[in-house]
């Protein structure tokens, strides 16, 4: 009898109700899905104040469009429209079952994909172009018939950012470098800082970063200060033109924060995406969807944020799709022209 009781108790423990032990979890219905997502953003998203978003008023607008019978398609539309108000391309809604996702504020970023063609740069504007085996988004070359080096940085991702030292060693005798950061999809801020460091002409405070740490929209931890730092055996202190477009984003923009503190750096191209923050863990919804959002704010030493604004170029120019079809890259042409007219570099 005692043995039987023991076995029953053991079986109960093994099969005991998950809910009893762990408590409630969000329910799988449209109302609960909306509420879960809205509340999580409300308690964790970092840029309501910076971007001037009234999250409470948006709830009133969009929650009324959802009820218990709302279809999956309509719910997707409502949530996409809700996060679109943030205009923050670090905010993404995913439906892995249907292999789709929605990126907030991504219209111009998407358009810019059609306004840049790296193969056009290589074939029409460079004498040579070399890839770095370990760094898939880092390559270099020389501008055709000009005493100008060329570096392409498409992401702050790779195995060894120190490879930039070898590139600088190769290009150091040129009179200028064009650092092409168009379509830079970001990555690791530390990687970008290392790259930027080979152009550093000073060491000073560049920005601060804070992570949201409470339920109040203005609850943030204490700021972490980030300083520019000279990297590598020697720095390239001759003119550097940085090319940007609307898809220069995230860690790419943080790299640009460092670069723009250096006196010899000029930005030419389009305004960058304006999305600096690190992203959250992917968050899970009970209907199988998931999402992520910004969790930090980056502030310049003067306390201002470029989130939602982006880096505004010193010289504005952008390509069109027609330019790409016509095999013209007006942005790199403007950079070459700028170096000639400003510094007499040819």
């Amino acid at each position: 009898m005692k043995n039987s009781i023991f076995l029953v108790v053991l079986a109960l423990i093994f099969t005991s109700c998950k809910k009893l032990v762990l408590g409630d979890e969000p329910q799988n219905n449209p109302n609960a899905v909306f509420e879960t997502l809205w509340t999580d953003f409300d308690e964790h998203y970092s840029l309501f104040e910076v971007r001037g978003t009234n999250w409470n008023s948006l709830k009133k607008v969009y929650q009324s469009q959802v009820n218990i019978t709302t279809s999956k398609t309509l719910l997707w539309s409502v949530l996409s429209n809700l996060i679109e108000n943030l205009d923050d391309s670090h905010t993404v809604l995913y439906d892995e079952n249907d292999s789709k996702f929605y990126i907030s504020g991504y219209k111009y970023n998407e358009q810019s994909k059609l306004e840049f063609d790296k193969s056009l740069v290589i074939s029409n504007y460079l004498d040579y172009h070399k890839e770095i085996a370990t760094e898939k988004k880092l390559s270099y070359g020389k501008v055709k018939n000009k005493d100008i080096g060329y570096i392409y940085l498409g992401a702050e991702a790779g195995e060894n950012p120190n490879k930039i030292d070898e590139i600088i060693d190769t290009l150091k005798n040129h009179k200028a470098i064009i650092l092409d950061m168009r379509q830079n999809i970001g990555g690791d801020d530390k990687y970008g800082k290392r790259i930027a460091g080979v152009f550093a002409d000073n060491e000073k405070l560049v920005f601060t970063s804070q992570t949201r740490n409470g339920k109040g929209h203005n609850d943030f931890d204490s700021p972490t200060k980030y300083y520019s730092k000279k990297q590598g055996d020697e720095q390239f202190l001759k003119p550097v033109i940085v090319l940007t477009d609307r898809r220069t984003i995230s860690a790419g923009e943080v790299t640009l924060l460092y670069l723009k503190t250096y006196n010899q750096v000029i930005q030419i191209g389009d305004t960058t995406a304006g999305d600096f923050s690190d992203v959250s863990n992917r968050k899970f919804l009970p209907n199988g969807w998931s999402y992520q959002y910004s969790i930090k704010k980056y502030l310049l030493p003067n306390g201002k944020s470029l989130d939602g604004i982006g880096h505004i170029p010193d010289v504005y120019v952008k390509n069109t799709q027609a330019d790409m079809v016509a095999k013209n890259d007006k942005v790199i042409e403007k950079a070459i022209d700028y170096l000639w007219k400003t510094y007499g570099i040819k």
Partner: peptide
């Protein structure tokens, strides 16, 4: 991890 799962301490 902190309140938001990731912060500068974790990143660094």
């Amino acid at each position: 991890p902190p309140y938001n799962g990731i912060d500068n301490f974790i990143t660094e």
